[in-house]
Each structure stands twice: as C-alpha cells, then as structure tokens.
Design a protein around this nucleic acid. Structure first.
Length: 606
DNA sequence: GTAGGGTTAG
C-alpha cells in the first residue's frame, strides 16, 4: 500500500504561508505545470508547487512527481527529492534516472551507483538516459571496474550505438586512464558528433598524450562538415600547453579569436596556461588582462604561471589584487601562492600565507600545501625546519613521494647526508621514485665528498637492476619539435664541435673556480679528481644548450620549457650564444632569470 | 531524466 504523502519536506508554517500566497493560482495542464516548475527561480516556489500538488492529489501521477523531483534536484535538495521518490508507489525509469543524476550533481556518485544496483532488482528497465547518467557516476568516481560492468550491460541492453552513451563511455575511460578502451568505443561508433570527437581528444590531453590529441584533431578538421567549438578549442590549447607547441597554440588562439570565444573564461584560462608553459609569460598576462572580470581560476592560472617564471612578486601582487576584488581564493590558489614564495625565496612571506590561509580565508592546508612549504624551507637551506615539518605531516604514498622527494632534493643541494638518507630510505621502502632516490642519494654523497658511499650507492642501484630514465628537453623550430636526451651529445649532427665546446666550457668554469651560489656547484673538501668528474658532468648537463648546434644554419631557435638558470648555466648559455652566433640566433638568452633561491633547470636536468 | 572544456607541489 502506498504511503501517505509526507509533509516532512514542508513545515506547517511553510504550508500555511504557501497556501496564502497561491490561493489564486492553480495548474490547469501538464505542459503548463512543467513550464511553471522549470521556470521556478527559488526553493520556496518549488515548495509552493509541491504543496499545491499535494492538495490536488496530482502527486499520484509519476509524471508530476518526476518533475518535482527534478525541481528539487536543481536546487540541490537531494534529500527532498529522495523522499519524494520513496513515496512513489511505482517509480518509473525517469524517476530512477532523475534521482541518480541528482546524486551525481550533488557530489554523491556512489549513491547513484547504489540506486542503479537497486533498480536492477526491480522490473524497471534502464534506458540510454540511465546508462549515460550512471557511466558519468563511474567517471566521477574514476571507478573503471564499475564502469566496465556498466559497459557490459550497455551491450546487453543494446545501447552500444547510442551517441550519448558512447560519449559517456569515452569520457569515463579517458578519466580512468584507460585510453585504449576509450579509443575502442570511439572507433566503434557509427555516428559521431563534435562532442564525441572532443571527448576522445580530451582523453588524450588529460593522459599526457598531447601528440595523439593533435593528430586526432587533424583528422577531425579534415572532415569538411566538422567545426571545432569552444570545448574542442580549449582541449587543443591544453594539448599545445602540455607539448610546449607555441606555434600550434598561437594558431589555435587565432581560431579562438576568429570564432569570438576569447572572452570565454575557460578558453582564456587555457590560453594563459598555454603561453606560460611555452615560456611566454608576457602573452599570458595580455590574455589575462583582456578579461575584465576574471574569476578565481584565471587568477590562479596567472599566479601559477608567473610563479613558474620566477616572478614571485607578480604572483603575490595578483593574489592581493584578487583579494581586493573580493574573489575568494581556493586551495589551488594557495598552492600557487606557496609555490611562488618557494621559487622566489620569499620564505617568510610563504610561512605567513600558510599560517593565515585557514584563519583568513577558510582554506585548510593539506599535504600539497605543506609539500610546497617543505620545498621552500629546503631550497633556502632551512633543512632542519623542513625535516621537522615533513615528519609532522601524515601523508599517503603519492603525497609522501613528493614530500620526501622534495626534501631529498634539498638535502642534496645543501649536502645534508643525514636527511637525504632518511628521505631516500622512505622512497625506496615505499617503492616511490626509486631510481631518482638512488641517483640523488649518490649525488648527495658526492657533494659531501664521501666517494666510497657514492660508489656503493651506484653499485647497489646496479645490483637492484634500477635504471634512471634519461631526462630530455626539446626545441621547436617552425612547426617541428626536436627532442634531445641528456648526455646524448654524440647524436648531434655536429657532435665534434659540441665536444670542443664542452672542453671550452670546462676551461672557463675551471677558471671561475667552480664555486657558484646556492644553486650551482658546491665543493666541500672534494678531491681534485672528483671535482673534475663533477665539472664534467655539470658541463654535460649543458648539452641542453649544445643541442642547438645540430640545427640547420640560419634558423631562429627558441629554447622551450620554462628555463630557469643559475649563474653558471647562464654564463654558459651566453658563451654558447657567442660561439654559435654566426650560425644561429639564440633568442632570449639574456632574459633568463637568475634565481637567488630557486632551482636551475640545467642543474636539475640530471 | 543523458554526453565534452580551465588552475595542482618535485
């Protein structure tokens, strides 16, 4: 027997109030009712309609109740929606699906999955709407196993050719790092639209496969009827950012302007990020300033972009500016602010922000923020404080890998073997960044001059069969990208000239005494022979710059990545520029930022 | 009642 309609949702006072307000109006027909419910601007109007339906007895009809469920869902009143659902004698597929979608919107995708399993025990059959909703729930949960089970049911119920269901599946597999499965769905589609193409392109972009994203985009644009919209363009800008493809990124920016999407907040944000990652922070700022009323995310993009370019002061000014404009910072904004302080040596400023982020802005610091602070303290040599902070934070394995990795890196920089040993042990025992842990530990011993330990660490690494993937860098010339691996000087077309240049650099560095600031080489009682070895390694790091020599004559080369260089490397780049000047134009060499406290891209290269 | 886009530490 059906339960009587509950009045819990509406208090007696509300009912009395609503009754007085709406005596003169009533619903005459279903279309009128739907129109009315969909146009409601606030919760009290929904409650009012609910009251009228109760009185008229219309809640007996599932159609009316479903409309009301959706109205509650729109106002994030999921409990009211669920109560209404519970009161239905025979909820139909729309009732079930509406409630599931409501739970996904309310950030409870697990409840949606629970409802889906409950629905399977009833006689109501799922349809395409149900499947796309529940696949979306799996996507939000990043639960690929649940997603696969739903996918199997999609096949059983015969919805595998439905366009929207396929888009949901592509998105779900993409967000669960199962790109092959996403691609299989995409390839199986008989009919595709811009959403399905965008879902697949975004899947590649979100899984760091920018090249595949751009390749698929080329196929998309090769079909005459296809036109990229702002969703697609944002994804492509993102792919360009991850690849450092400035030329392609600019071309996409042109398409954005042409199609008048430049004021779109999401696109603007992607462009700000893309230009920053391609080394053009000035363009980022220009794009950012074209937006008169940026929200928290564009501000955060700009703060992080400036921070990565060593413009910590600019980051902090932007942060102050957004506060003045009453824009509330979020947890990622604070990651950017702390990152800015860390990379510009603004330690006290950084600590101040850490201590006030919750008190003033209600943002609770988490492992990510503490990691920035540990890194900040470590870089400036406040190793003991960094160590105490790291020990006091509870972290999971992934967070710990970053935290102890940062501490290990700082210990190497300052020759703190004791802390480095504990950090590398943590990483090895947790099976996180094992190769980096061995190499950095070995380098820390080298900085401290304990060469027996250097050898034993290297031997242990070899015995354990651990290999370090070589680092790489790249330059973009016209529309082509050239990748260079660390130490791979011999593959350069003009390798012999590179080697001569290496020797020349070594000579110059020796003349300088090898001693640099806090970022360069630090020698503490190191034997002469070992010094030579380190200097040689340090010079090899500069292969990054020497790779320029393999380029054809007369081309303009822009060094990609956000290159931060210490004084030694800066000198070396200037030297390279002098030597190869007749053959090459190496732009921006004099514009590299010297970092008093930040890390050097060249030094970090190994 | 259903699908796609932006910022995240080393």
């Amino acid at each position: 027997m059906r339960k009587p309609p509950s009045q819990n949702i509406l208090t007696t006072l509300e009912l009395a109030c609503i009754s007085r307000q709406n005596k003169r109006s009533c619903f005459h027909s279903q279309p009128q009712f739907v129109q009315r419910l969909q146009g409601l601007k606030d919760l009290s109007s929904v409650l009012s309609s609910h009251s009228k339906l109760l009185k008229s007895g219309s809640l007996e009809e599932s159609f009316s109740t479903n409309q009301l469920i959706n109205a509650y869902v729109r106002f994030q009143e999921i409990e009211n929606a669920h109560q209404l659902f519970d009161e239905m004698s025979e909820p139909n597929v729309v009732s079930w699906t509406s409630l599931m979608a409501g739970y996904v919107d309310a950030g409870c995708p697990g409840m949606a999955l629970w409802l889906f399993t409950k629905m399977a025990r009833c006689t109501v059959l799922p349809n395409a709407f149900t499947f796309s909703t529940i696949i979306n729930a799996c996507s939000v949960l990043a639960d690929v196993n649940a997603g696969k089970k739903v996918h199997a049911q999609v096949e059983v119920y015969g919805y595998q050719c439905n366009l929207v269901v396929c888009c949901s599946l592509i998105d779900m597999y993409g967000k669960s790092n199962s790109l092959d499965a996403a691609r299989r769905v995409f390839d199986s589609m008989i009919e595709r639209n811009v959403v399905s193409w965008t879902s697949m392109v975004t899947g590649y972009t979100q899984n760091a496969q920018g090249y595949e994203a751009l390749e698929l985009f080329k196929v998309f644009t090769g079909i005459s009827s296809n036109r990229p919209n702002h969703y697609m363009l944002a994804s492509i800008v993102n792919a360009c950012a991850s690849l450092g493809r400035l030329a392609y990124g600019k071309a996409t920016h042109a398409a954005v302007i042409k199609q008048k999407y430049e004021t779109n907040d999401v696109i603007a944000c992607a462009l700000v990020d893309m230009y920053a990652k391609c080394g053009c922070i000035g363009y980022s700022l220009k794009v950012f300033r074209r937006n008169c009323r940026p929200s928290v995310i564009p501000y955060t993009c700009m703060i992080i972009g400036a921070a990565k370019h060593g413009l910590g002061i600019l980051s902090l000014e932007l942060f102050q500016e957004m506060l003045m404009r009453k824009i509330a910072p979020n947890r990622i904004t604070f990651v950017g602010v702390l990152y800015a302080c860390s990379h510009s040596g603004l330690v006290d400023e950084g600590l101040k922000h850490l201590n006030t982020m919750y008190k003033k802005h209600g943002v609770l610091p988490d492992a990510m923020h503490y990691n920035c602070v540990v890194d900040m303290l470590g870089r400036t040599g406040r190793l003991d404080e960094a160590y105490r902070l790291a020990k006091s934070i509870e972290v999971d394995q992934n967070q710990g890998a970053l935290l102890w990795g940062a501490l290990l890196s700082a210990s190497r920089l300052h020759g703190r073997v004791d802390i480095a040993a504990e950090a590398s042990n943590w990483l090895m025992e947790s099976k996180q960044q094992v190769a980096a842990a061995y190499v950095t530990m070995s380098n820390t011993y080298a900085v401290a001059g304990t060469w027996d330990d250097v050898n034993s660490t290297r031997c242990e690494m070899k015995r354990a069969g651990v290999k370090k993937e070589p680092g790489c860098s790249w330059v973009e010339i016209k529309d082509a990208v050239f990748v260079f691996y660390a130490g791979d000087v011999s593959s350069c077309a003009r390798g012999s000239k590179v080697l001569i240049l290496l020797k020349e650099l070594e000579r110059k560095m020796k003349k300088r005494g090898y001693v640099a600031g806090s970022n360069g080489l630090v020698f503490v009682d190191v034997e002469e022979e070992a010094k030579e070895e380190i200097v040689s390694l340090h010079s090899e790091r500069l292969a990054l710059g020497f790779s320029l020599l393999s380029m054809p004559k007369g081309v303009t080369i822009r060094i990609m990545k956000n290159l931060r260089v210490c004084r030694d490397c800066h000198e070396a780049f200037k030297l390279i520029s002098d030597i190869v000047h007749r053959d090459f134009v190496v732009r921006d060499v004099n514009r590299f930022h010297h970092f008093a406290h930040g890390s050097c891209s060249c030094c970090d290269f190994w």
